[in-house]
Structure formats: C-alpha cells, structure tokens
C-alpha cells in the first residue's frame, strides 16, 4: 500500500490550481451564459452568476439558427469521420498486408502528403470547389477531407501489430483479402479505429478556415463560423454570445467524456511506433 506523502499532497495542490486555471475559460463561459445582459456587461464583473437566467438559451435559438449550425457541424464531421475511416483503413490494409508493385513509391507518396500544410492547397482547392459549384454545399465542406495520410499511417501501424499467422490461417480456410479485411482485420482493430474516429471527428468539428471560405449562407454555416458571427452581430449582449458558445461546447465535451480513453490510449502508439 502506497502512502500519501507530503510531496504528493503538494503535487495535488499544484495540479488542482493548474486544473482550475485551465478550466476557468470554459467555466467562465458557462457562468456568462446564464447571466442577465446587465450582469454580463457590468463592472466590476461578477465572478459567479447571481441567478440562473436560462432564458438566454431560448433567446439564442430564436436569434440565430443555432440548431442548424450544430446539425450541420455534426453532419459534416460525421461524414468526414466515416469517409476517413473507410479510405484510411482500405489504404492501410494494402500497405500492411498486401504485396504489390510500386508499394514503396506509393508509401512515400502518402508520406509526402503529410509534409504539405493544408493551407498551401487552400487557394486552388477553393477555386476547384467554386468551379464545381460546390460553394455552400455539403460536398464542398466534406469531400476535400475524406482521405487522410495521418490516419492511414496510424491504422497501418496497428494492422502490422496483429499476428501474421492469423492471415495465414484464414488463407488456408480459403479466405481472400477482402473477406479477411472486412471480417477479421476491422473487428480486431476497433481500438485504433476508435482513436482515428474521435480524432477526425474532433478535427472537422473544430475546423474554421475552410468552412469560413466555402460557406456563405446562414443555413450552411458550421457552429464555429456561427459563433464568431454571433459575436460580430451582437457585440453588446455577451450573455447571448456565451449562451451560444455553451451550446457549441457541450457536444464536444460529451465527446471528450466518452472518447478520452481512446485518445490517450491510441494517439502516441499510432503516431510513433514505426
């Protein structure tokens, strides 16, 4: 049995202070979201809300189509997540389990894409999407992001860890690549797939610049753009702005609660073990 020492007590103290500091901006927005307008813009600012003014939430829904912002974001993130899982797991399987001509070249091609910052391709991609008439559409928001080199690597590393004998045995039983991939590899790789799913969902959920470029109309906006527009529109009613932020944060908080274990377990393993 380990004993609770003074050093540990100190470290708990430091950690609690750090946690309060890190959490403060989020707690602050929750507090602001339930204040009345006069309380939110009063000086000196109140550290805690004096009353629970939940009408703000209703007011935000009335003011901007925040439900459709959130709906759009969820839809777009889910599409990108599923797309990335499909494309990355297929490509990762080919790299991990198949022999083919040009494998080395293909692999370095994938590696090269990780070197290219997305912003470098932003202008031509914008022009492409515009010429396809995909501005303000779900295709424009999602299709450029359906493939991921990072995810492919992560899954490849995981696939390589699975015992080779498994495939040999399946092959003996007359199981081809497609069946082995679908019915053996994928179910065995749920932890890695889960990590990639959480990661790609969060990435898309939080993306800002691309949705800013390709959406113009209110019904197509994602929550991130919606939030910053809210701020530009209603600079005086900060309580409403924060009510909107709270509504935007809550879904991703839930995602963190359920996905934290996946992330902590899988991130470094996938990115590093070569």
């Amino acid at each position: 049995m380990k004993k609770f020492t003074a050093g540990q007590a100190l470290s708990y103290l430091v950690m609690t202070a750090a946690a309060v500091l890190v959490l403060y901006p989020v707690v602050y927005s929750f507090f602001m979201s339930v204040m009345t307008q006069s309380e939110a813009s009063a000086y000196p600012p109140s550290l805690f809300p004096h009353a629970l003014h939940l009408a703000n939430m209703k007011e935000v829904f009335r003011m901007v189509p925040i439900a459709s912002f959130i709906g759009n974001t969820f839809f777009v993130s889910a599409v990108v997540m599923i797309g990335q899982l499909v494309t990355a797991s297929c490509a990762a399987y080919a790299f991990a389990n198949m022999e083919f001509k040009g494998k080395g070249l293909m692999f370095s091609l994938f590696a090269a894409t990780m070197m290219v910052p997305w912003e470098v391709t932003m202008i031509p991609n914008y022009l492409t999407v515009r010429s396809l008439n995909w501005l303000d559409t779900y295709q424009g928001l999602t299709i450029p992001f359906l493939a991921t080199a990072f995810g492919t690597f992560m899954l490849r590393q995981f696939f390589l860890q699975l015992p080779k004998e498994l495939f040999e045995a399946a092959k003996m039983d007359g199981c081809g690549h497609v069946r082995y991939f679908l019915f053996h590899m994928l179910p065995l790789s749920r932890p890695a797939l889960g990590t990639l799913a959480v990661y790609s969902f969060l990435n898309m959920y939080n993306s800002y610049l691309w949705p800013l470029l390709v959406t113009n109309s209110k019904p197509m906006r994602t929550i991130q753009i919606g939030i910053s527009m809210l701020e530009f529109q209603e600079s005086t009613s900060w309580n409403l702005v924060f009510a909107g932020i709270t509504l935007a944060i809550l879904p991703s908080l839930l995602l963190l609660v359920f996905g934290l274990k996946q992330l902590v377990r899988g991130m470094a393993a996938g990115a590093l073990k070569g």
Binding site: Y205, N206, Y208, Q224, S228, I245, I249, S252, L253, L256
Partner: peptide
C-alpha cells in the same frame, strides 16, 4: 482540445 478555435477565440 475539444474547444474549437472559434469558441475559444470568442471566450
């Protein structure tokens, strides 16, 4: 990590 740049900036 889950607070997007949009929300974080406004906060």
């Amino acid at each position: 990590m889950v607070i997007s740049v949009g929300s974080a900036s406004v906060i």
